[in-house]
């Protein structure tokens, strides 16, 4: 069984946020909800100044704190390592949002489904078809586009990235590009001191 994960190549990320738009589109996310983000920070002093871009998403931790605290069993890990949220079981308590050290959990506010993307209280046909997968009030996150993965496709953010800065694959397969990048360029996991064993790595 595969153990899916993702590698971010920071040398390649140009901060265009195409991944974020691709994700919002694939997952029909309401306004203000992100399953992936591109953080950015300026560094240096004029005239030697630059900007760094750091993509983030759910790290699909091996020891997922969100799963441990979930009282209803809504959060669970698939055999292939993808950490999932069951919309029917989630009671919206928000424990997972508090437990996640990466701030990757989002409550799907009932209001945002009613207001729609244009804030007019009217849903577009696109939203109508997309919102049915969520329960208003649930606290959810990225699932590596599990439906796409089951169909043999890469997650939407990966195929949208114009610079190939996001590499998805089986971390246990030594021939996968993700595995190779982690080994060859010293992949680093975010906040290792939290002992969550993320399946997302950064190389620079």
């Amino acid at each position: 069984m595969a153990r899916y994960g993702m590698v971010f190549d920071l040398r390649r990320c140009i901060g265009c946020n195409a991944c974020v738009v691709g994700c919002k589109q694939e997952n029909s996310l309401p306004d203000g909800v992100f399953f992936t983000r591109t953080l950015s920070e300026e560094y240096g002093v004029f005239p030697a100044v630059n900007r760094v871009y750091i993509p983030t998403l759910c790290n699909h931790c091996e020891d997922a704190p969100c799963e441990k605290v979930c009282p209803s069993g809504a959060t669970y890990t698939r055999d292939d390592g993808i950490v999932m949220v069951d919309a029917d079981k989630c009671i919206g308590c928000g424990s997972c949002a508090v437990a996640c050290p990466y701030d990757q959990r989002t409550e799907l506010d009932k209001k945002s489904f009613e207001q729609g993307l244009y804030g007019e209280g009217e849903l577009t046909p696109f939203e109508e078809q997309g919102y049915s997968r969520y329960t208003p009030g649930m606290v959810t996150k990225c699932d590596f586009c599990s439906g796409r993965v089951d169909a043999g496709l890469d997650p939407a953010c990966v195929v949208t990235c114009p610079t190939d800065a996001r590499i998805f694959g089986d971390l246990d397969d030594p021939t996968s590009k993700a595995n190779q990048l982690i080994r060859e360029r010293g992949g680093r996991a975010p906040l290792p001191e939290k002992n969550t064993r993320p399946k997302v790595y950064y190389v620079d």
Partner: peptide
Amino acid sequence: DVQMNFGESLSNPWIKDI
């Protein structure tokens, strides 16, 4: 910027959100 080659793209809620 790369997200809004033209300011008109700001009328797209996804882009505005970013």
